[in-house]
Design a protein around this nucleic acid. Structure first.
Lengths: 176, 176
DNA sequence: GATCATTGTGCAACTTGTTGCACAATCGCT
DNA sequence: AGCGATTGTGCAACAAGTTGCACAATGATC
């Protein structure tokens, strides 16, 4: 649904091979649209077949050979059209909240440790975002593109901040 | 993965038919583990076959006939075991943030309207949560079960609050 | 008593995402 | 030259979620 658009965005920022794309997903786009290399290769194949991207001709076509892709005009148009489409927020589906609800019914043994573990994970993620913020957005961005990108990062920061404060409260509540 | 556990939790709270379950998902468990009636019926079938739940004998077995399910001991044990399992937070996958990132590349035409639309949706959701809070958790809960349930609701409230403040900021940023 | 909306159950086809693995080229080391 | 680590591409099987539809019973309405 959205993965092809995530890939088009990444490829517009910089033409890449499948593996490069995978790595960039791990530390950028993947923060808010995660994916595995298998899925990325599959989508690259489909996008190429659909005429939205093409492999740069320099590369030899053989297995184990690096293959760089770039976005074709049709791909850019497709992405621009998608950006303009309205789309409702997806329904929430969070295993931890569900688990808490189940714990209310069958007992909450050991859930405190799980909450603390999650807290640490979210704190680590927040620290990562803060680093990116310092590295890329200090001083404050001036171009429209960078303002948008900064807003997206702020989304990640605020989201982690939400989790941290909720988890902290939950832990205190359960202990008290 | 988690849907069967969501169903077990709901059925433990109160034995129900498929459609009742679907309705309760729409205004309770579904707030953090959404599902459709088709999926619910499918899972009910699997859970019954696996011996975790059973249809109450009162009902006639015919299509279009209401069929109530209750949880068997095996189902409760299964749920309790699941609650104790550690599980990492799922990677974020948010279309709106992705869309903003794409907008940074192909242009942000009309994204302001989309942000405002989402803001309204999240405000409505928050209002719904507030109502539930007032109805069910005022005065403050005393039992452990209710404390856990209230924490889950607080999660929903805080999450909507995060979105509202992020969206408000984003709208201001883009206008300014 | 025919028809229509509602309640209720469910199948089938499809799309998306996950997991596990296979295989090819390249580079550094000894 | 041979070996292993790394880089790189990709298939196959499966699990989970979505979409569209079919069909049965019940109660209300004319």
């Amino acid at each position: 649904m959205s993965l092809p658009h995530a890939i088009l965005t990444a490829l517009l920022e910089k033409p890449s091979s499948g593996l490069e794309l995978t790595r960039r997903f791990d530390r950028s786009i993947g923060y808010f649209w995660s994916s595995t290399h298998q899925q990325i290769y599959r989508e690259l194949g489909k996008l190429e077949e659909a005429g939205r991207i093409r492999a740069l001709p320099t590369a030899v076509t053989a297995r184990g050979q690096k293959k760089e892709y770039e976005v074709l005009p049709a791909g850019r148009e497709e992405l621009a059209a998608w950006v303009a489409l309205p789309e409702d927020p997806r329904p929430v589906r969070d295993p931890l909240l569900l688990r808490m609800r189940a714990a209310a019914v069958v007992g909450a043994d050991g859930i405190g440790a799980e909450l603390r573990r999650h807290l640490a994970l979210h704190e680590a993620q927040l620290a990562e975002y803060r680093e990116i913020e310092e590295r890329n957005f200090t001083p404050a961005p001036t171009t429209d593109e960078d303002r948008l990108r900064y807003l997206v990062l702020r989304g990640g920061i605020d989201l982690e901040t939400f989790w941290i404060s909720w988890l902290t409260r939950a832990i205190a509540d359960l202990d008290g």
